[in-house]
Design a protein around this nucleic acid. Structure first.
Length: 466
RNA sequence: UCCUCAGUAGCUCAGUUGGUUAGAGCAUCUGACUGUUAAUCAGAGGGUCGUUGGUUCGAGUCCAACCUGGGGAGCCA
């Protein structure tokens, strides 16, 4: 029985200087090439985008083992770490012993050495992690998720887990997925003939959450600063490269923050996420820059370095009206900005990230703090190049009467929201918050143009495979 | 959901005004090569042309519906 040497990750071996030492590495074969006598295996274990080159003197190994080493197979290799004689890598391993953990039949294994389209890889999402691209994307996604927690933790925010099953559809943030255990063929009915949700698991109609904001506000009015970071669900029939039915959203909520504090936080937060990722995932970002988007790194640095433009909705309307630009949708004070308008402001007019504030109250949610002009509310949208709105937020209406008034105006059922109103009755405070779609941020940082390529297993209309 | 483009070998694509037996590159397999870098060179195998129906002597090609995917729009994060 051979004495087992501890396995070392490729990432660590590539910078190792322990030449001449016996090492142990495990991973998946990207390519095998060579002649009858000598072979080269590119081995990747996901720890880094780069591969470890394994040099094999074929005559020293039995033919059966060598035959099993094909693209996609999984190996455990022991050998000597040496300085590479070839160009393209600094170190390599001269194999002494190879164990094949898992074969990958070349006739049926769908991944080749050559590049594949992202569309094809989406159909084999269970295997696409093994490509350079998706390895890079999901390592970057991790780095960004970690950066989110680090940022808020360092600032004294508490990570709050808001419910995934909810009974309030108060925000009106979109169509919801119903959660029910009722017999779908023969549900209990009320005397009026409607489905009787009193008989359902929770005794009322429940859905998957579309936002954790309302609950986060409750916590903020006690813990001061909290944030959520969790799955969010929208049953909208949206078929675009920017929408998912299941996505991850980040929602900080802060007591004693006004709209300006809120903007400061949003800008600082976005810049931190980008710069942290630039610093901690340089190899992956460089790869994505080279393969998919030649201006990616430049754009990321630009976001970090340049101050965001801050202006208000009314000013934006003026600019758009005076713009020498043909828009498909008309620009009128009171109507919401369309994607074309947002992109014009960001990409053509200011050529900067933009924060717009003070939108007309009728195009925004009921909970936003009303300005004294009676027409606008203290909303803020952060607009990014390519993506448009990446953050939507506001100062919240903390005044009980004004909030109640708005709820009544919009005929929102108060009975579902008694708790939300009650925190305005007891020790209310000015407070603010915003929401960020995590995948959209990952899109921005990785340069991936389709949101389905930045979440491991995308859920979209008519698609829930894997 | 609307508009638009596409679906041909495992992958990426070509296929003329409708006309004999549907092609290429890569991948795969076999062979050659003692240091390769998406290795190279030679040969071989590989197809219900998305599905169904229609027009026609004849359909990969024309028409219709549907399915799947891309892009744009709406909804939104």
């Amino acid at each position: 029985m051979r004495k087992e040497i501890k396995r070392i990750k490729v990432k660590d071996l590539l910078v190792s200087k322990s030449f001449g030492k016996e090492v142990h590495v495990k991973g998946w074969v990207r390519t095998k090439r060579g002649s009858k006598k000598i072979g080269f295996i590119a081995l990747n274990d996901g720890s880094i985008i780069h591969n470890m080159q394994i040099v094999v003197d074929f005559p020293e190994f039995d033919e059966q083992t060598i035959k099993q080493i094909t693209t996609g197979s999984c190996l455990s290799v022991t050998g000597t770490l040496v300085e590479s004689k070839g160009k393209g890598q600094n170190v390599e391993i001269h194999a002494r012993h190879i164990e094949v953990y898992g074969t990958a039949d070349p006739d049926t294994y769908p991944l080749q050495k050559k590049g594949h389209t992202l569309e094809f890889l989406r159909e084999i999402a269970h295997l696409r992690f093994r490509t350079n691209t998706f390895g890079a994307v999901f390592r970057v996604r991790h780095t960004m998720a970690y950066a989110v927690h680090k940022y808020f933790n360092d600032k004294g925010f508490y990570y709050l887990h808001t419910p995934i099953i909810t009974s309030s559809d108060a925000e009106g943030a979109g169509e919801m997925f119903r959660v029910s255990v009722l017999d779908d063929l023969n549900p209990p009915k009320t005397p009026e003939g409607k489905v009787d949700y009193e008989k359902d698991f929770f005794g009322k109609e429940t859905n998957l959450t579309v936002s954790g904001q309302l609950e986060a506000e409750l916590a903020a009015l006690a813990l001061s600063e909290v944030y959520t970071f969790g799955p969010t669900f929208r049953a909208e029939n949206s078929n675009t490269p920017r929408h998912l039915a299941e996505f991850w959203m980040i929602e900080p909520e802060m007591a004693f923050y006004d709209i300006n504090d809120n903007m400061d936080l949003a800008e600082d937060f976005l810049k931190f996420i980008v710069s942290y990722t630039l610093e901690n995932s340089p190899d992956d970002l460089e790869f994505l820059n080279k393969m998919y988007d030649k201006e990616l790194l430049e754009r990321l640095r630009f976001v970090v370095e340049k101050e965001f433009i801050r202006t208000n909705y009314t000013e934006a309307i003026k600019i758009l009206k005076n713009a020498n630009e043909k828009f498909e949708f008309p620009v009128e004070w009171g109507s919401d900005l369309k994607a074309e308008h947002e992109r014009f402001l960001v990409e053509k007019y200011y050529k900067r990230s933009v924060i717009l504030t003070d939108y007309p109250k009728d195009i925004k949610a009921f909970y936003m703090k009303q300005n004294n002009d009676g027409k606008t509310i203290r909303a803020m949208d952060v607009l990014f190049p390519r993506l448009g709105e990446i953050i939507g937020g506001s100062q919240r209406e903390e005044d009980y009467d004004r909030l109640k008034g708005r709820i009544d105006e919009l005929k929102i059922p108060v009975k579902e929201l008694w708790w939300y109103l009650e925190v305005r009755k007891f020790g209310t405070a000015p407070h603010s918050g915003f929401g960020l779609g995590f995948e959209r941020m990952v899109q921005f940082v990785t340069g991936m143009s389709n949101i389905r390529d930045v979440i491991p297993f995308p859920r979209t209309p008519r698609s829930a495979e894997f």
